[in-house]
Design a protein around this nucleic acid. Structure first.
Lengths: 235, 235
DNA sequence: CGAGTTCTGTACGGAACTGTACCGATCTCG
DNA sequence: CGAGATCGGTACAGTTCCGTACAGAACTCG
């Protein structure tokens, strides 16, 4: 493979200019993550930065009563944790693997070095953090205004894009935690989406039957976040 | 006044090292903002960046049905808009003045120039954006989990810190929009806070009677966001 | 195969919040 | 001062969602 033709499988890394892409080959190692495996802990120094390939990671805020709410969903269009691109090597949030798969892992040392030395690298990462900020803001509005079914459809739509498959493993229990609602609330929402033929949901196995229909049932936040990340990968 | 002793009144700008502070004097002009006056529009190129002195600005997400929800509150500990520190001169969100007062305004050109040329400047701004990201995430969790009264107390607590006064002007109508709830919901919450003697609320005029009590009634998100911004101003 | 675990569907009372409406109080401004 | 606009308190029916509980289905593993 010629230099610069290296592809990591993470769209953010692969959107770098040729020379930076070549550097990726040396800086990355691929790690298979199991479901619910933690990658970063709130308040702890980061040892590495993870660029998902086909895994989906969740960034969550943990409240004092122990409740957790998802504040960011990260797939092959982005990375965890954003702090690394904001002059801090301490992660503010906890993140873990939601849908099992592979991530391209870079040490925090290498990441910081490249932020400093490559203008295109730093620029692309920061533009991506901007999309992450947009998403967090969108989630704030979404959680305040949108009904469970729509948020549920949004999450499934986002996840399908990220895993690149119609099938993925996810229990209602975890989806409920992500959305900040009751499990039985997700059960009812998933049932509604099944009845209209958008998905099937059987014991942790989701299958998207009609992507267009599912997207249509999702709130506007799906398209908004997708657009923000897409924009951050261009130019 | 000796160089480096210049104080803008915005704590973020004033946390810069001596040399950068001196530069502020040339780069800033002070602008008085009226309540509800817009400073940035979603999708439009930024002409300037605003560092509040005693004004309080709101960053809002506008949904397709026209509803707006606050996704960031900005006072003298921060600035709008974060995008400027993330390699974009286009604002992703709309922001406007919530509590009237003064902002220190810098042209986007000067801001970008300083981001590029001063490492301490760029570092401080990015650490501040990190706190802004943390806040947006916290709001996402807050909107999903916390009751109106607590969110209301949070907002008033945050605002009092930012205006540096026990009195400020704010209609329930606008507070309702910020929290993403009904106006009469705010009316009931404000009434509850009045009954316990934390505040008085009369026709758009809020007076905080017992700050400690108000803070205690606020959800944990008040302290969490305050801490995040405080940390971003140190070192 | 059988015991134990995990996961989902469903139910029910209750709490929180919504949408809407109306009135009175207060402020603004000619 | 008086008309009009703004703002806040209250009410009520309706909806969404919560907390909790329980049973059955599906899976795991010895």
């Amino acid at each position: 493979m010629k230099p610069g033709e290296y592809r990591s499988g993470n769209r953010l890394l692969d959107a770098l200019p040729r020379q930076d892409r070549a550097q990726n080959e040396a800086d990355l190692r691929f790690v298979a993550l199991a479901a619910h495996q933690s990658t970063h802990s709130a308040g702890r120094a980061m040892e590495h930065v993870d660029f998902p390939v086909d895994a989906v990671l969740s960034v969550v805020a943990t409240l004092m009563n122990g409740d957790t709410v998802e504040v960011g969903t990260v797939g092959n269009e982005s990375f965890v944790e954003a702090d690394a691109a904001l002059n801090s090597s301490i992660s503010m949030r906890t993140s873990f693997c939601q849908v099992r798969g592979t991530v391209a892992r870079m040490s925090i040392t290498r990441f910081e070095d490249r932020m400093e030395k490559s203008i295109p690298f730093a620029r692309l990462m920061r533009r991506n953090v901007r999309a992450g900020l947009f998403s967090a803001q969108q989630f704030a509005a979404c959680n305040a205004k949108h009904a469970i079914v729509k948020r549920c459809a949004r999450w499934l739509s986002m996840t399908q894009d990220r895993v690149g498959s119609s099938d993925f493993i996810l229990t209602q229990e975890f989806l409920a935690i992500m959305l900040g609602v009751r499990r039985s609330g997700v059960s009812e929402a998933a049932d509604a989406l099944q009845k209209i033929g958008a998905i099937t949901y059987r014991r942790g196995a989701v299958r998207v039957l009609d992507q267009a229909l599912l997207n249509a049932k999702a709130c506007e936040c799906y398209a908004a976040c997708k657009g923000a990340f897409a924009e951050s990968l261009q130019e």
